[in-house]
């Protein structure tokens, strides 16, 4: 039996600002993980990764991250991606100070 698919989100950095961004269902890039399209199967993940990668004039370094759904909202499962959602942990600056 194959392993259950871990839900995923397409992420990247914005070309102009470098900000961490997430691909939404309507092909926009959001600064907030909560806005991201949650991908529930492998084939769709491959497709959305290609969709994200086909916007090289908007984003850099497109890849898929694992997420867990909490009340329907995606949360990163790895600590690296947790930091990417909010910025550096040494003190309050970066995304956490600007978005939340």
């Amino acid at each position: 039996m194959s392993k259950p698919f871990i839900p995923k989100v397409v992420t990247a950095n914005a070309l102009l600002e470098g900000d961490v961004v997430y691909l939404t269902a309507d092909d926009q890039w959001s600064r907030q993980l909560a806005d991201a399209e949650v991908i529930e199967d492998l084939a769709h993940g491959d497709l959305r990764l290609l969709d994200g990668s086909s916007q090289p004039d908007v984003v850099v370094g497109v890849y898929l991250i694992d997420v867990a759904l909490e009340d329907g909202i995606p949360q990163p499962t790895h600590f690296r991606e947790e930091f990417r959602t909010r910025g550096p942990s040494n003190y309050n600056h970066g995304k956490q100070a600007e978005l939340f």
Partner: peptide, 16 residues
């Protein structure tokens, strides 16, 4: 990328 790196510009976790 190789051009920006020659000029000291990296893309890091949250920003350039």
């Amino acid at each position: 990328k190789p051009l920006r790196l020659m000029n000291g510009l990296y893309l890091q976790l949250h920003a350039y």
